[in-house]
Design a protein around this nucleic acid. Structure first.
Lengths: 260, 260
DNA sequence: TGCTACATATCGACC
DNA sequence: GGTCGATGTGTAGCA
């Protein structure tokens, strides 16, 4: 990692280092006293104070205060950064075309600037999502109940997509809504809406179901259920199945599979 | 701003500086080659690579790659950070109680660490939100149309809240859904759902409306409308009113008001 | 503490 | 370039 650090620079030196870093497509951090203006989708102003500025080679621009995970101001990747000197202050601008957005940072005093060319070829591997849960249920449908047979995934209805469509051992239709986290009232309402949509819709599954005089069962599949949601599923005649999302990384899974 | 910078430290020195910084409740940035594991609401793993670590005095913990606005891994405010040395590597852990979440950073090589006590007493002032839009319409109802009289705000119905409830000059009921950004199909559907909820609900507004044989008008209020949404409002008999969210900071507003 | 809704949401996938 | 949906969404407000 090649890096450079500049402490207590004057305005011109700070400007010079930032230009150099931008040219070299390095990642820059600045500890400085600044004032920030943003105009674009919304409008904001942040008065003089000390903050940390992070500029990435992909154009991302972040300003962090000493609190919270979220930056106080930012610009997304592909934004264009430029700097100039005005009234003996260093101004940094980050500009985006669509939508038109401009972030302006007026820097009164730089404590230090660092930049480095970061080498990172890894991507985050993760698990424990709704998609993983769907994959798992398609692979092991008995997790839902004995005899469950999935027939379709991401089945389109008026207000969205039914996560998994299938049949139980008695050939009743089953409509599954998956949630990777604790399900709330909104999840129950969503499933209810899909059930209504499905019943209003003219489709082969429904026709077959009517002909064979079978039921349509709505199932909410999630690791747990909120208190309010418990009441609502009773009322709506919806069933709940407790399933935890698989917390297994794909690489680990592969290893496990390879072992067999 | 008091700060300290340590370049190319060995494991022990890096550990020492971080402990010192945590004690002093400083804001820390580390450029380092590390490996990251997260387990909590989900599960993730990030293999060896160079990243920027930011630790804030409120407990926020961020790991940034050289791309994107979002950190690749993080912990929220109030998380507890601790460090230790294992196998000649520096380990940083950030721990959260509820929900139980643990972030583990294994650092192989530190390029540099800096910490500083940041002084920032300013908060972001902003404008251009749905709430501002609601305030503006309550203050200047004629923006919607001549003779519009708001009667209720955040009126609760089955699937959510009606932003503004009111009457027109002919005493017809008006149900307003506000959006601070371009409205899409989902906004129209949301309003339609609220209209249905309202008509299904047993309330005084509705009773009065029926007695006086008045209409119920649904209005979508937003700066603009997507193409698909235009078709849908036609079909659903919903009206659209173009209103831009007020992009005026409260301080500016106050000044303006003081001037009168 | 828990729940709801908003955000300059961001981000990825799909069209 | 848009549209749609998931997110370890984060965050504020309120019960």
């Amino acid at each position: 990692m090649k890096y450079k650090i500049l402490e207590n620079p004057n305005c011109e030196d700070a400007y010079g280092l930032i230009e150099e870093a931008l040219r070299k497509r390095a990642t820059i951090t600045i500890y400085a006293c600044c004032k920030v203006n943003y105009e674009g989708r919304a409008l904001s102003e942040l008065n003089w104070g000390e903050r940390i500025i992070l500029i990435k080679p992909d154009g991302s621009f972040l300003i962090h205060q000493e609190k919270k995970v979220e930056p106080v101001n930012w610009q997304p990747p592909k934004s264009k950064t430029r700097g100039y000197i005005q009234d003996n202050n260093l101004i940094l601008e980050s500009h985006r075309r669509t939508p038109k957005e401009l972030l302006t940072v007026e820097i009164r005093k730089v404590q230090y600037i660092t930049y480095a060319n970061i080498e990172d070829f890894e991507e985050l591997e993760q698990a424990g999502y709704e998609k993983d849960m769907g994959d798992m249920i398609m692979e092991k449908p008995h997790m839902i109940e004995e005899g469950f047979k999935p027939t379709a995934r991401e089945y389109s209805v008026e207000h969205g997509f039914i996560d998994i469509l299938g049949k139980d051992c008695d050939n009743n239709l089953m409509i599954l809504e998956l949630k990777a986290r604790k399900a709330g009232v909104s999840a129950v309402k969503q499933l209810k809406r899909y059930l209504t949509d499905f019943e209003d819709d003219d489709n082969d599954y429904l026709k077959e179901c009517l002909v064979q005089k079978k039921k349509i069962r709505g199932l909410l599949v999630a690791p747990s259920l909120g208190e309010d949601a418990k009441e609502l599923i009773e009322k709506e005649g919806i069933e709940f199945v407790a399933v935890n999302p698989p917390k297994e990384l794909k690489r680990d899974k592969k290893v496990t599979l390879d072992a067999f």
